[in-house]
């Protein structure tokens, strides 16, 4: 068990992960991750199942059909009317939540102008964190990957604590890590460790990772895509998401955006370095600002269009907003 630093600077000794801030989550303890849709769960739970069972809350009647379970016949109606009706009851089941984190290098964008690493690798890729122990504080401006890590840790905590199942997948150039859904504390700790171990990669091919993930999915649930969607394979990504959606997964786009991505930093001359081997660009940002805003807006619209086209929910999240606040709003919105 590791410790984490709370926004107040107090080390939470009981936290199982540096990305899990239990004191911050106290206000969200009463909230549950829900979905307005019916779900298919393996176990009994608090979520309305797609299937009608013989127990639980009464739902309606249905005419008897040969082959139906005679145990569900409403004998009283048969006695009074002589007709065969079956009583249908709404079953409750558990929910499977699968966050997918984009671990491409662009997710490490933090808006810092100085390099982080001191070594050769740090000089070449200053945005790449060289030590796992360097966990940023959530009180400051987080990069998108860290923001996703904090967000997922909190979500996993809430999901598993509610008896639902949570899994995790990280996708960069491919499917790097995948841990299936589970609801035990031990499973949650594995998820936390997996979150800590995430490292960014140079490639960003979400479609390929999703295809690999599709082959390993067995159940249905809610898939959360935490990404900046700065990808080149837009058409392939859309196709992969359609297949996942066809399998019955509910997809939610959590589009992570850093404030300096929405609008370029103030100043005159900048030498921008691509984070995924995209080269170097020197420019006067004041002269480019208007054109850049138009271009980034087109990107936002494109991602939203993809989500709409595959029947997914879309949520744009700014890393300037504390992840706890974002999570709270998200849960309220999900609860409907």
């Amino acid at each position: 068990m590791s410790s984490t630093i709370s926004p107040t600077g107090v080390i939470d000794a009981e936290s199982p992960s540096p990305f899990l801030e239990l004191r911050q989550l106290v206000a969200l303890e009463h909230m549950r991750f829900a979905t307005p849709h019916r779900v298919d769960g393996a176990y009994s739970g608090r979520h309305r199942s797609r299937a009608m069972g013989g127990s639980g809350e009464f739902a309606d009647y249905r005419a008897y059909a040969p082959g139906d379970d005679l145990r569900r016949l409403d004998w009283r109606v048969l006695a009074r009317t002589g007709r065969l009706y079956l009583k249908r009851f709404q079953e409750d089941t558990n929910l499977t939540c699968l966050p997918i984190i984009d671990c491409s290098a662009s997710m490490r964008f933090s808006g810092q102008s100085t390099s982080i690493g001191d070594g050769p690798l740090g000089r070449l890729m200053p945005w790449r964190r060289s030590k796992r122990s360097e966990v940023p504080s959530s009180s400051g401006m987080l990069d998108k990957l860290s923001y996703a890590q904090f967000f997922c840790a909190a979500l996993v905590h809430l999901v598993t604590r509610a008896g639902d199942q949570a899994g995790l997948a990280t996708i960069g150039g491919q499917l790097h890590e995948y841990l299936g859904p589970g609801s035990t504390d031990n499973h949650a700790r594995q998820l936390y460790k997996m979150l800590e171990a995430i490292q960014s990669v140079q490639q960003s091919t979400l479609s390929r990772g999703l295809h690999e993930l599709l082959g390993r999915l067995s159940s249905r649930g809610v898939m959360l895509m935490l990404s900046d969607f700065l990808v080149d394979d837009v058409a392939e990504l859309t196709a992969a998401l359609r297949q996942i959606r066809h399998r019955g997964w509910e997809i939610v786009f959590l589009h992570l955006i850093h404030p300096l991505e929405e609008d370029l930093p103030s100043g005159v001359a900048y030498r921008f370095e691509g984070m995924e081997n995209e080269g170097v660009v020197s420019c006067n940002v004041d002269e480019l600002r208007s054109l850049y805003r138009n271009r980034i807006k087109e990107h936002f619209d494109q991602v939203r269009n993809i989500a709409t086209s595959v029947g997914a929910d879309y949520q744009r999240i700014s890393t300037a907003t504390p992840y706890i606040e974002t999570l709270g709003k998200f849960l309220v919105q999900r609860a409907g």
Binding site: A105, S106, M107, R108, F109, G111, Q112, S113, T114, S115, P126, W127, K144, D228, L230, H258, E261, L264, P265, G267, A269, Y270, R271, F272, E273, G274, M275, E278, G279, V281, S282, C283, E287, L288, L291, Y292, N294, R295, I296, H299
Partner: peptide
């Protein structure tokens, strides 16, 4: 003197530069 900064959306900067 230019400020060095890694940028995730450099592709959009490049597009804007080409246009400008």
């Amino acid at each position: 003197r230019p400020i060095r900064m890694p940028l995730s959306t450099i592709r959009f900067v490049q597009d804007a530069l080409q246009q400008q």
